Amino acid sequence: MTVDPGARRDLAPPASESYTGDRTTLPMAVLNGVADGPRVFVTAAVHGDELNGIATCRRLLDHVDPATLRGLLVVVPIVNVLGAQLNSRYLPDRRDLNRSFPGSRSGSMAARIARLLIDEVIAGSDIGIDLHTAASHRTNHPQVRLDTTDAVALDAAVAFGAPFVLDAKLRPGSLRAAAGDLGVPVLIYEGGGPSRFDPDPIDVAERGILRVLHRLGMIDQAPAPAHGHPMVLHESRWLRAERGGILELHVRPGERVEAGQPLWDTVSPLGEERAVREAAEEGYVIGATTLPLVQPGQAIVHLALPGDRVPSEDDPTEELEDDEDDEDGPLPA
């Protein structure tokens, strides 16, 4: 496959086929600049119900002109095409595509799609941006997740300009982990919730990608960040309901909270019992549930903590669970 300098070519390599023999393709746009520069990929909808990235990619393709681009840009707006058709996070066989990398050419449907993406998009790239939203019944404040020990990735993440940059562990089987094994750093953008278009997270994502392209010298101009200089954070935890009931949430994603500040109440249906949860420490709300009814143990608020901290046995730091799944996997059973 060749793309002339200063041109765009839309491709649709076959990814799978149904039992009727109908081909499922992986639509992508390849923009080849007029001068040498980095190779960057942008992917979205690895989870089929995470739609904000689809809108972001469409807007990005409207604004990047290969006639003035330096380097190569590959945009894949819907990686999990079959899941998107069903408005499902997963593939029809219930596999999580973002647990299936690097995949194989003769494996499951998820493995084959993952291998195709590795071979055609990720391998040979200098850096990638993978667009996500929160999982079902959650929302995320715009944030970029990465390994902050990677200087190249951290520089790009700060340039992106989302409100928060969060250090996040790699998950086996994820796109980010497989790309890292190939020496390709990947920024994970999280913003908004599934099964809808959220205008603000889409705007932050579009601005951020353009700012990264500008930082890499691929384009001449980039918009200002939507939320000013980002805050780099190294630890986060989910706070959980101690009692079930009707949820009255007192904080919003993006809000700074102080120790002792009420975060939420849970109230019994008749109102005779009320449990109040207060913040034990300072932090920033980077995600929250959208459910009005909760059960004991349910994750309610995702709090990022300032500074470098070492958790104790009495105050454990929980994994990002469904948020770097949101990036990497389903909620634990």
Rank of each mutant, 00 (worst) to 15 (best):
I188H: 00
F160Q: 02
P194F: 08
H137G: 00
D150T: 09
P163H: 04
H132T: 13
P163L: 14
R196F: 11
A179Y: 02
L154I: 06
D198F: 09
F197A: 12
G161P: 01
H137N: 11
A151L: 13
G183R: 08
D198C: 13
P163A: 14
I188D: 08
P142A: 12
G180L: 12
F164Y: 06
P163Q: 09
A151T: 14
L170E: 09
P194C: 12
S174L: 10
D147N: 14
R176N: 09
G192Y: 02
A179V: 06
P201E: 05
H137W: 12
T133G: 06
D130Q: 06
P199R: 04
G161Y: 02
A156F: 08
G161A: 06
A156N: 04
A168M: 13
A178N: 01
A134P: 03
R171C: 09
T133W: 03
D155C: 10
P185V: 15
H137K: 08
L175F: 10
R196G: 10
S136C: 12
H132M: 11
T139P: 00
T148E: 09
A135W: 03
P172N: 06
G183F: 12
D200A: 14
D198Q: 05
S136I: 15
T133R: 00
G183P: 11
L187P: 00
G192L: 11
R171V: 15
H132L: 11
D130V: 12
R138C: 13
H141W: 13
Y189I: 08
A151F: 04
T139R: 04
D155G: 14
L187A: 06
L131Q: 03
P201N: 07
H137M: 14
L170P: 04
A177K: 01
F197N: 11
G173L: 12
D198R: 00
H137I: 13
H141R: 10
V184Q: 00
G183Y: 08
G193E: 12
R171L: 14
P163D: 10
D167Y: 05
F160S: 03
L170G: 08
P185A: 13
D150K: 01
P201Y: 05
V152I: 13
P163G: 09
R138F: 14
S174I: 13
T148S: 13
V158N: 00
D150W: 03
G191W: 01
T133F: 07
Q143P: 02
D181G: 14
L187W: 02
F164H: 04
A178W: 02
G183V: 15
P194I: 15
Q143D: 05
A178L: 12
I188C: 05
A151K: 06
G173H: 04
D167G: 11
